[in-house]
């Protein structure tokens, strides 16, 4: 194994069923249903997936959903805004914990 992340492995995603066919099938059925057009458009879902890909920092997902968002008609401006939404939640989640730090700080201080 030369590297933990190999771009070629993205194409093998479907093969995760090899070691557990039943659960693998359930996962892909679920995955396929989630991305169908519904109350949200496939375009909106693609932007959400792109944003989440960044928060989970999955290079496979970023690769796949950058291309997918482009094929759903999104432009760079929309895609970057989606990533900023994810980044804002991620940094906000870190910062909101500072209330705990502040509380503790105040408890320990004169």
């Amino acid at each position: 194994m030369d590297t933990y992340y190999n771009p070629e492995d993205l194409k093998k995603f479907g093969k995760i069923s090899e070691f557990q066919p039943e659960l693998g099938k359930k996962f892909f059925d679920y995955y396929g249903s989630v991305f169908q057009e519904g109350a949200l458009t496939t375009r909106e879902k693609s932007l959400i997936a792109l944003a989440v890909s960044h928060t989970v920092q999955c290079p496979y997902c970023i690769d796949a959903y950058t291309e997918d968002a482009m094929e759903k008609g999104c432009d760079s401006e929309e895609m970057m805004e989606a990533v900023h939404v994810a980044a804002a939640i991620k940094s906000g989640a870190a910062l909101v914990h500072s209330v705990q730090m502040m509380n503790k700080y105040k408890d320990l201080s004169m």
């Binding site: 496939t42 482009m70 759903k72 008609g73």
Partner: peptide, 17 residues
């Protein structure tokens, strides 16, 4: 036509957009 190496979006959705 896509401005790059990717396939076009769904025609109806793109038309609405």
């Amino acid at each position: 036509n896509p401005s790059g190496a990717f396939l076009p979006p769904d025609q109806d959705s793109l038309q609405n957009q």
